[in-house]
Amino acid sequence: MKNELEQLLKEYMDKATETDLRAMAHVLKGMKNKIEGKSTTYIGGILHYEKNPDESVWELTVPINPALYNSLGIVHGGITATLADSAMGTLANTLVPEGYGAVTSQLNIHYLAPGIGDTLRCRAEIAHQGRNTMVVSAEVFRKDGKKAAQATGSFFIVEKKVSSGE
């Protein structure tokens, strides 16, 4: 696997534009963050989440980089949805009892403006907290303050199972 990856990286480096290199550096730094324990998930590492937790509100900020672009050169809608889902899910998971987790059962997102600029910041807060479900709302803002998306998510509260895999 290591030789195959080295070959792939060499081929990439030989053909990459400056934009390609910026995108790859972003992804590799994120993977390094995961390996070093600075991020608990690969997606969190790749997106370079900066967390700003509060008791009832959770904020995540991500730097915008070409690795996150769609074919129009703006942040891909799936990245915006992932940011909202991650902020809402992280908040939900901070509120469940020990031994339980919150998993997304429904995600609704309304895109309001293109994801452009230096960063996207998502602010999530609880709309409803029950024994078996939660509803969380989120807003995603560009660095210029313009709201890029509005989202809601429903979450099931489930008992964590002991994993035998990685």
Rank of each mutant, 00 (worst) to 15 (best):
I74S: 05
D14E: 11
L91W: 02
T90V: 09
D144P: 08
N93E: 11
F141C: 07
F156D: 08
R131A: 13
G89L: 00
G73M: 06
G117D: 11
E98C: 11
T19K: 06
V135H: 07
L107H: 15
G165E: 08
D14N: 07
E4R: 15
P114A: 03
V57K: 10
L68I: 02
I79R: 00
T119K: 06
Y100L: 01
H26A: 01
A138I: 01
L107N: 13
A25K: 08
N52C: 14
E139G: 03
E55S: 06
M134E: 01
Y100C: 08
V158W: 14
N33S: 14
N70C: 09
A87V: 04
E50D: 14
A113I: 09
V135F: 04
N65Q: 10
A138S: 07
G153V: 10
E4V: 00
S39D: 02
L95K: 08
V75Y: 02
E98T: 07
P114L: 00
L120M: 09
K146F: 11
G145E: 12
D144M: 12
A149N: 09
V62T: 14
V62I: 15
G37P: 05
I35E: 15
V140L: 05
K51G: 03
K34Q: 15
F156L: 11
E59R: 05
G73I: 13
H76C: 15
E98Y: 04
M1H: 13
E55I: 04
I35V: 15
P63G: 06
N65G: 08
V103R: 14
E125F: 14
T17A: 14
T80N: 03
Y111H: 08
I74C: 04
S56E: 14
K51C: 07
G130A: 07
A113Q: 11
V136E: 00
I109P: 11
G44L: 03
V135G: 09
M24H: 06
L112R: 10
D118G: 10
E11G: 12
L5R: 14
S154G: 11
K15A: 10
K143W: 00
E18P: 09
I64V: 13
M24T: 06
H110F: 13
F141Y: 12
G73A: 08
T40E: 00
G145N: 08
R142W: 07
T82G: 05
A87T: 07
M134T: 01
P114I: 01
I126R: 02
V27H: 13
T90W: 04
W58M: 04
A25D: 15
P97E: 12
N93D: 04
A113E: 09
V140A: 03
P53E: 04
C122Y: 00
M31P: 06
L9E: 06
G37A: 15
E55L: 05
T119H: 03
G37K: 15
K15R: 15
A16N: 06
